[in-house]
């Protein structure tokens, strides 16, 4: 893997996270972004706090062994909230790609070197994979929202009908295996 680039990123980890977090919260209106950045309490600002925590682990995974479970676990809280906010799918997932820009800006000089540029392409391919994972989670959450809508409707009516004896169960015995 791109060892030289990873060690560069490692050295600048907190600066990169700060910049990445900045561009992540800019999916929101300026006032909201300011709040998400400034309020540190995890209960007063659950969106900001879980987003910050999530991207920290994501960066570590991108630099490390790309563990699928760890990536999904850090993406889930971010995508779960974005899936129910008024963001388009593109707006909800764009923050992953923003990391490429953050790295390009930060290591502009180093990336002039062809060897380093090659490493960057490798790293960028990892970012793409994370983005696809994010999109899967986003769509999963959307499906869950639709299921919740459908189930609430069904439970409200079907259960009442059943209690009132208006639903006929299929006759006969359950099939044996």
């Amino acid at each position: 893997m791109a060892e030289a680039l990873v060690s560069l990123i490692h050295k600048k980890r907190s600066a990169i996270i700060a910049k990445w977090f900045d561009s992540t919260v800019h999916a929101y209106a300026p006032d909201t972004a300011a709040f998400l950045k400034s309020q540190q309490d995890q209960f007063a600002n659950p969106v900001g706090s879980s987003t910050r925590k999530g991207i920290e682990t994501l960066l570590d995974q991108l630099m490390g062994d790309m563990n699928g479970e760890a990536i999904a676990a850090s993406l889930d809280p971010i995508m779960r909230i974005r899936a129910v906010q008024s963001l388009s799918p593109a707006q909800a997932t764009a923050f992953i790609f923003a990391l490429k820009q953050v790295l390009r800006d930060m290591f502009d000089k180093q990336l002039q070197d062809p060897g380093m540029a090659r490493q960057f392409f490798e790293f960028a391919a990892r970012i793409d994979r994370v983005c696809l994972a994010a999109f899967e989670i986003y769509v999963g959450c959307r499906e869950q929202v639709f299921e919740l809508k459908a189930n609430e409707m069904r439970n409200r009516t079907f259960r009442a009908f059943k209690r009132a004896g208006l639903v006929a169960e299929p006759a006969g015995e359950e099939p044996q295996d």
């Binding site: 995890q42 209960f43 659950p46 129910v84 906010q85 929202v145 919740l148 809508k149």
Partner: peptide
């Protein structure tokens, strides 16, 4: 209501976050 589920899920998020704790 059911049709505003996104509003309910996002508005209930701070409560859910505390339950998660």
């Amino acid at each position: 209501a059911g049709e505003n589920m996104e509003l309910r899920m996002s508005g209930g998020m701070p409560r859910a976050n505390a339950v998660k704790h």
